[in-house]
Every structure is written in structure tokens, then in C-alpha cells.
Nucleic acid binder design. Structure first.
Lengths: 218, 218
DNA sequence: AAGTTCTCACCTAGGTGTAAAGTT
DNA sequence: AACTTTACACCTAGGTGAGAACTT
């Protein structure tokens, strides 16, 4: 289902951002992870997300330039722990201090609307880290905290003093099914199994167990 | 040795292109290949160059934006063939019709001078093909013809009507030691041996022969 | 005979979870 | 006890020239 922008950017210009629509790719895979309580590994050197955050975009002005970026907002101010006996996440106290807030610019930015719209936009170069001192430009997250990824679409306004209008030139998209808890090691074994079953790079850990293929939904 | 631009772009602007200097990386490796008569494989699906065309750039305005691109000019209007008995290239007649002229934009283009200058700029994504109908954007060359790669540095002028000044906004760099003959299979066995000795992806063909390491120059 | 295409084993480069070891 | 780090085997993805097969 397409997602309408959280911020309405209606204004009189030929190219604005109000008509932009964004659809999450691999929606049903995200739903399966979200249903189990999704986890994403963070490491010192940085770890990719899986599933990858990928979207299909429509409604851009083909000739105008846009910048796409992703950030991660804490869902709450809590620290979590996993209760193995009940297979569930419990609140373990107040959240730790937020690490330096960073954004990940899609490496193709800036690009024209026609470029963004003609194929799936994939944020597969993005990496998550728990290293507060990271200087590779990775996204820094607190382990055992819950995060919501957000996509921002920014119209590059060629006019001088465009900062005056900047508030009208971007919109934000948030897909609740992409929420996850950052971890240094997987807690829920069902998450581990679904990652192994669906991530091509983990094929070496697959068994002949047909349950491993259940994510195919067929 | 830095290479001064072929085209002098002196003009009164704060940022121009006349002061740009470009230095070829892996110069001594290029020299060794050039000394033997360099060959580059072309295939239907596209083949990387080796050595890779890499440069170090200085003299740009850090704040201005530049586009970098590579093209390949025929050195002459001749077709060559390799004489195995004399281990040398001979003229085999007039050159074939030139394929569609293409340029390869460096994928980071456009970028600010500070970005281009802070590390080696590598054209390792560029691929050479002999397929006249290629639609992957690869550089199309005639096999058994000789080519000279050229680097163009284009200043992105933010002023309106910048096309009026466009002729002053680019310069071209040409390194004679990067010249080569396009082939579908290597002709000179010494070129083959030097490629195997110096290209990490050909390590599987290396023997214990110490000659294979001669390119190290030690 | 000369040049091109194709498949292949062998690499580089780097993304996986595992299990043991380390840390607090 | 709870969490993090590290080395590792096993993958994906794709860049090599060899050599056989194919084309003209």
C-alpha cells in the first residue's frame, strides 16, 4: 500500500513534494519479521540491515532533483531485555543516552525524479553500528533499544534563498513494519531462523527443514 | 609527473579549470605495459581495464563542483594484426568504421573539488566492449584498433546561461602511457604474463616463476 | 588461418550466523 | 548473568585467463 507523506507540502510551485508516494518493497517479508519482533545486528565495524530498506517511488516531478535519506528514531526511552523462558521482550529500565544522531544519504543523491521512479530504490549500503566513535559514517544505535526507520524525500530547490522555503520542500515516510530492536546477537531463535531462511548470504546455515522456506508464503 | 591541461582555460572567474593538475597513479605499471605494447580485452558483456585508470587531482576549487569523464580516441585509422614470429604489431589495413562514440562519467560526478582531491579517483567501474549494440552504457571499441584514453574535467557552472562560457569550463588530460590495442584475446604472451603477475583477480594463474613478480621493480 | 565467443576453475571482496572467548 | 567481541566456515557476487568451440 502506498504511504502518503506525514507532512503535507502543498504550495503553488510546479514541482513540490506533496504528490510523492512511496511503497515499501518486500512488504510481506517485513511483516513476518515484525510479527516476531524484528531484531537487527549492530557491530563495531557496521552491519547491513536485513531485510534491506527498499522502496518504489511515484509522483515525483521527473525533471526536478531530489535527495533521499534515511534516519532512525528511538521508538521510546526504554531499554529492553529478552526473556527466553517466555520468548518475549521486556522493558529493562530507562533508555541509555542517545548516540550522535546521523542520517544516511542514498548514495545516488541528488538525482532527478525520473531516475528515482524508474526502479526500486535500495538502501543496501547502509550499515548499523554500536560504536559511538564510528568514523565511517554508519548509523549509530544503542543495542537493546527499539528503532523506527524513516525515509525523507527532499526536493532540491534551484532558487537562491531556497532555505526560506525549505520547510515546504521535504516530506517524511514511516513504515511501522520496519521497526526493530538493535542487538549485538540475535535473541529470538525464530528471528534467527527467518534471517537464515530469507537472506541469501546466510544460505550456508540452511538445513533441509521445510519450515525454513515458510517465508515464501506458498 | 603532474600533467598540465591540453586546453588552457584562463579567465577571470574565481573558480576555473586552468589550475587543475592531474597525476596518473600506478605510473610505473602503466609504463611496463606500454613498453610491451599494451592490450585490453573487449568482450560482448564488457571487460574492465587493467591497469585501472586512476588519477590524483590537485588545484581544483574545493567548493566548486566538477564532472569527471573518460573517453577513448582512435590513435590512427588503421587496423592491426600481431605477427607471432616477430612478436610485433603490424598494420593490417585501413581501420573499420568507428563505433558509436561514448563517454564514461565517473559515477561520483558531480562532486566538489574537495571530494575529488582528497583521495585517488578510480575509473574501475568502466567496461570495454566490442558489441556495437551494447545498451549497458559501456565504451564500444573496435578490436585490433589502437586507442588513447582521455580524462576530461568539467567545471559545473552554477550561473544561468553557463553554456555561453562552456568552452572555458573544461580541460582535457591525456597520458600517452595508457595507450593500448583492443583485442578479444591477448596476442603478446608477455602482456598475458604481466597481467597475470599484476592483476589480483588473475592470481589463480600465477606460477612460482619469479619473473612473474618482476613488475614490482624490486 | 585469423579472429571471436563461450564455459570453466580459480581467484578477490565481502555479507552471513556460530560458538567460543571476553567484558562488566 | 547478561551482553559484546572475535575468529571462522560458508555463502553471494563477480573479475581473471585458459582452452575448446565457433565463425568467417
Amino acid at each position: 500500500m502506498p504511504c502518503a507523506p506525514d507532512v503535507d507540502g502543498t504550495c503553488g510551485k510546479a514541482a513540490n513534494v506533496a504528490s510523492v508516494r512511496v511503497q515499501l518493497e518486500m512488504h510481506s517479508l517485513w511483516e513476518q519479521f515484525n510479527h516476531l519482533g524484528n531484531e537487527m545486528i549492530v557491530t563495531k565495524s557496521g552491519r547491513r540491515m536485513f531485510p534491506t530498506f527498499q522502496v518504489h517511488i511515484s509522483g515525483m516531478d521527473p525533471e526536478s532533483e531530489y535527495v533521499l535519506l534515511l534516519d532512525f528514531v528511538p521508538v521510546d526511552d526504554k531499554r529492553y531485555r529478552y526473556a527466553f523462558h517466555s520468548s518475549s521482550w521486556l522493558v529493562a529500565g530507562r533508555g541509555d543516552a542517545s548516540p550522535p544522531g546521523r542520517v544516511h544519504f542514498h548514495p545516488d543523491s541528488p538525482a532527478r525524479g525520473s531516475q528515482w521512479m524508474k526502479q526500486t530504490v535500495s538502501f543496501d549500503r547502509l550499515k548499523l553500528t554500536n560504536n559511538l566513535l564510528d568514523d565511517n559514517g554508519h548509523i549509530i544505535l544503542n543495542s537493546m533499544h527499539c528503532y523506527q526507520p524513516r525515509l525523507h524525500v527532499v526536493l532540491v530547490d534551484p532558487r537562491r534563498d531556497s532555505h526560506i522555503y525549505a520547510q515546504r520542500n521535504f516530506c517524511t515516510f514511516s513504515f511501522p513494519e520496519t521497526r526493530f530492536i538493535a542487538v549485538t546477537a540475535y535473541q529470538n531463535h525464530r528471528i534467527t531462523r527467518l534471517k537464515i531462511a530469507s537472506n541469501p548470504f546466510a544460505k550456508g546455515f540452511r538445513t533441509a527443514d521445510p519450515d525454513d522456506c515458510s517465508y515464501l508464503g506458498r
